[in-house]
Amino acid sequence: MPTRNIIEVSNLSKTYRKGSAGEVKAVDEVCLEVPEGQFLTILGPSGSGKTTLLNLIGGLDKPSGGKVILDGLELSKLSEGELVRVRREKVGFVFQAFNLIPTFSALENVEVALAPTDMSKNERFERSIELLESVGLGQRAHHLPVELSAGEQQRVAIVRAFANKPRILLLDEPTGNLDTKTGREILRICHEANKEQGQTVVAVTHAGYVRGYTNRLLFMRDGKLFSQIPQEEFEEPV
C-alpha cells in the first residue's frame, strides 16, 4: 500500500524586494512531495533558499506563489487561527540558533510550547520532564539556557519541538552551531523519532554527514530543488 504524501508543495515561490537590486527569488517554482514517515534532507549552500522553503512549509511565512498542502490542509486557505493550530499541533520547528527563551529554564522552555494547549499544569510538567529525560537532560531541567552547552541547548530545542507530538519535524540547520560529534547526537535523536514514532522529518543543512541518518536527499541552489547532489557539497566523508 503506497504511503500518502504528508507534505505537498507545488510551484512554490517566494520573492523578496531588495532595494536597487530589484526582486530576488529565494524559492523558485519548487515542487516537492514528502511521503509520511520520510526523513528528507535538503542540502545546499548558504543563501540557496533552504530556510525560506522550510519556513513556507511550516506556515511561518507566506509564499508569493504556489501552494503548500500539509497533512491535507492547504496553508494559504487557512485562517490565522487555523494556521496557529497547524504550527502548534502538526509541525515542530528546530532552529540553527536554538531559539530558546533566555529567561526560562530548560523545563520552562519545553513547557512554553504546551502552554496554549488544554493540558493541566501537572500534565505539562510531567510531559516536559519526560521529554527532557528522554534526551538525557533530566538533571539539567532547571538550568537556564546560558548554563547549558550548545548541544544541550539544541536538545532542549528538539524536545520543545516534540512537545506537542507533531507529525512533521522541520529542522533548520540543526547542527549548524554544533561540533560534528554533538551534531551527530542531535541527528540520532531526530532519526530515532523518525524511526520509532514515524514522524516525518525535513531537515535543511549543509552538513554532509546528515546523509547517514536520512532516507532521501535533495539539493537546493538559487531557489530551485535538484535530485542530483554535487559531490563537493559533502564536507566530509560519509
Binding site: G81, V84, A115, P116, A161
Partner: peptide, 16 residues
C-alpha cells in the same frame, strides 16, 4: 521581537 517570533513559531496564537 525574536522571542515573540519563537512563541508564534511554536504555536502561540495572537491572543496568547
Amino acid at each position: 521581537t525574536k522571542e515573540i517570533g519563537i512563541l508564534k513559531a511554536i504555536g502561540w496564537s495572537n491572543s496568547n
